[in-house]
Design a protein around this nucleic acid. Structure first.
Lengths: 338, 338
DNA sequence: CCCGTTTCGTGCACCGTTCTACGTAAATCA
DNA sequence: TGATTTACGTAGAACGGTGCACGAAACGGG
């Protein structure tokens, strides 16, 4: 512990002494509770200003609320997250709540630890974005702290809320967009399932793809490619898929995250887009918009999802106990890749 | 507050009662402090396991340490951050420390609030990545909590450490790479300065660019473009720069973050790369590697910076009080854009 | 066998807040 | 004017841990 010239912390007691009032009085002013005269308030506020007093969140959390929310993100390299985060922040900021973020690195174990960490830090509520954690575990945590989940389908959950774009509908939009252009040889590319509980977005999009294909009478043309996790063999696999003699003419990819590397592989192989390969992604990430990428993608309006999540969390924190499961409408962003 | 079937929390008292020992004994076992017999330890650990006890970070923090570090990031959409974060995590995880992240959104005001929040949450130390906060403010905070700063040059700082890649050297590498290809009409493109204290990386890279140009006898060819912040007029400005009759033949861009949109604008205008425009970026982001981007870039080895930062923080937390200012060597990643 | 050391476990005073319960003075009402 | 109410401020007990100081064994050497 660095113990140089440690400025002794300004506590509520320091303020009370300075203002010549009781500790409780200062506390009341801070929480603008009932029963404070203007004279007292002024005195206390003057001292607070003079001393630069900030209440300790940790101590405050031991009895009251901390006005801090926890947000758990899968990672920081996912283009889907900034929009959601910004949506959350827009709501929480104006309500005077602070946000602490945990980065789950897509490992369920890490995520559980982080959630526990947030509970132990006495946060007032949690928003989990694209969490990998199973529903039953979530129910367990939800008994200890209000929770809202984004990007994880669990429509029967009782203890927590879920906010999602309608991933099945998004997949249907993509398939339809291909059909409109006359394609019938449409494949779906997804990440390899990893303990997959059918709750994650990728399987939902797969289900939507299958339904849409079946509805179009193309059930026998259904093909699903599953990408391995690690980087090197993934790039290889992308190339292999593209070079195989019976490669699909059109690919709907579960996320821009994989669609763009796929596009890159196609480009490297000298394939024309969309003439030799048509492609639609998901998330409408900023990269998709770049002219050399120009990727058609499904947009799920991250800021809106974030906003809805924050609002749901607040309503749950203030009493609602019956679960809410919201599904928003995705939109197709037309570009040159299909 | 959701007050459904609130599982009453397992506290240190619950454990003590269950194991038939004192609260202090449990505390000792948790902190594996001196003076615990094997018998006692076993008894207590059994109860802890049975009850699933986790100590409250908040309460613990009021006297001891929390084993939690705060990491402040500029944003989550910056390709430079994942590497650094991963580097930090690799060190802290094995040391049994948890990380809470704050997202500063590149606004100094928000960042200050978040740092205060982290101090109030009793974190044991802070790593600030690409923070916008002025040096004097940092010194102030550094008196309250050990701090290490990444991506912000403040070589004279006393109270905190800084870890940076040598941005001036990186700029020099870029200029040299252009010179080697025979370019002399080399411009620098940067973000418009925003309260800029010369400490941020962009001005450092600018200084390096100026030095390198001067050293090459091209002082009179020095040109600097400053991009506005907001998205729309930025794209316009990029196009304008590229379409002006005396546009530079080679541009060194302060970050891939702006180099890639610039590349996109060039592509949209049908300009050949590198024949009509040569480009070098900074950060070697994953996108730069994509075949349709193929951007030459300066790599600063984020994971290494993160690792160094975490190690510096630990050494500071365990007593070191004289500041450390580390500069790492950047490398040029050759690709097709120059 | 006595006395000085260790070793182990406990009681208790913190840490910085919140919040309930209570006392007092002023204002209102009959 | 006396009885109520209302407004304001204060003690002091939580909250869930930590860690110091202390006492009681157990140990060990002369």
């Amino acid at each position: 512990m660095a113990d140089g010239d440690t400025e002794t912390r300004v506590t509520i007691r320091t303020v009370a002494a300075d203002a010549g009032v009781s500790v409780a009085a200062v506390s009341k002013v801070m929480r603008n509770a009932y029963g404070v005269s203007d004279a007292l308030r002024l005195k206390v506020e003057a001292s607070i200003g003079k001393l630069g007093y900030r209440p300790s969140v940790a101590a405050r959390g031991m009895r009251g609320r901390t006005f801090t929310l926890g947000v758990l993100l899968v990672g920081i390299d996912n283009p889907f997250l900034p929009g959601i985060y910004q949506g959350i922040e827009s709501v929480t900021e104006s309500a005077g709540y602070k946000i602490m973020v945990g980065v789950g690195a897509a490992r369920a174990r890490t995520e559980v630890t982080l959630i526990e960490q947030m509970i132990d830090n006495r946060m007032d509520g949690l928003i989990l974005v694209a969490s990998q954690i199973a529903g039953e575990t979530l129910e367990h945590f939800a008994r200890q702290i209000p929770i809202v989940v984004v990007g994880h389908h669990e429509p029967a959950a009782q203890g927590y809320d879920t906010i999602n774009n309608d991933d099945q509908r998004g997949a249907q939009l993509a398939v339809q967009a291909f059909l409109d252009r006359g394609y019938s040889d449409i494949a779906y590319m997804t990440q390899s399932d990893q303990g997959d509980h059918h709750a994650d977005v990728a399987p939902q999009r797969e289900a939507g793809y299958r339904k849409a294909m079946t509805a179009a009478g193309l059930a026998d043309r259904i093909r699903v490619f599953r990408l391995p996790q690690c980087g090197l063999s993934r790039d290889e696999m992308l190339s292999n898929v593209l070079q195989s003699p019976d490669r699909p003419r059109a690919i709907f990819c579960w996320s821009d995250l994989d669609a763009i590397p796929l596009l890159s592989a196609a480009h490297r192989l000298g394939m024309g887009i969309p003439d030799e390969l048509a492609l639609i992604g998901y998330d409408n990430s900023p990269m998709a918009e770049l002219s050399m990428v120009d990727l058609t993608s499904i947009d799920q309006d991250g800021p809106r999802l974030g906003k809805l999540a924050a609002e749901a969390l607040f309503s749950r924190m203030t009493g609602r106990s019956v679960a809410e499961h919201i599904l928003t409408e995705p939109t197709l962003i037309l570009r040159g890749s299909h």
